[in-house]
Amino acid sequence: MLAHIFRRIVATIPVMAIVALFVFSLLYIAPGDPAAVIAGEQASPEDVEKIRKGLGLDRPFVSRFGEWSWHILQADLGTSMFTGLPVTQLIVQRLEPTLSLMVVTLILSITIAVPMGVIAAWKAGTWVDRGLMAFAVLGFSVPVFVVGYVLAYVFALELDWFPVQGYTPLSAGFWPWLENLVLPAIALGCVYIALIARITRASMLEVLQQDYIRTARSKGMGQSGILFVHALKNAAVPIVTVIGIGVALLIGGAVVTESVFAIPGLGRLTIDAIVRRDYPVIQGIVLLFSLVYVLVNLAVDVIYTLLDPRIRY
């Protein structure tokens, strides 16, 4: 097992190298000019050209990629063309809000979605099942920003239970921190809840047909014990897989959610960087997200072995 984890970590290196090359190349050929944005609307073409040279954007691809890669190898993601601040610093500034949003969303989603899926499977074919699955379909279909606006409309503007926007660091207290995250987490979690609930239901339906479940029932075991002790554990592998896949959904959804609720996280940093063509920041964030995704997949593989001892690498 440890050897497998080591091999997977080593395999991450070429994956990240390919991602790096891909991202750099894409940005190189993509249209847009950070120098024009920096120079402002009234700048002359000559000024724009001088700023471009100042930023080193007139240099050939190989030279720029070589320099950037060399810095990456030294864990230096470069400097933002606009702020002049190190990309690492910008990412660290934004990490806590995004991590907070993702953690709260994950906890909320799993807490709601898994019981939803289990109950839907247990009550398969009834109005409870249909109602829960209709809710799941709705959650999957409505765009995150629409859910966000509706939640803000009801719970921030009408009821004034939560703030409309912003983020309070955890260091300022648990409730102030959570208060800012409740609505965004629900908005972002809708898709996730729908996805996990549907997979849980499908997986549970399959397991509930198994002989050992019938045996457990015939021995007089209670319904909750059957569902949550025997069935859920054996249905967990696909659920864990989809939770892992869903991290990518969370990353994508965070971009929109952070914009709607003005949370200063990595999602907004990504949008700002793309709009302005702040290449070092875009490259740094994509590399980070890729690394997170690779590591989440690794974690999912490890969790498989804990859930099902038959799985060996």
């Binding site: 803000a152 926007q165 912003g166 914009s259 609720f261 907004r268």
Partner: peptide, 18 residues
């Protein structure tokens, strides 16, 4: 200076006194 790129969010924040 609070950067609110979404106008609806900015309008709501102003109305909410944020």
């Amino acid at each position: 200076w609070i950067i609110l790129p979404d106008p609806a969010t900015a309008a709501a924040a102003l109305q909410n006194g944020e």
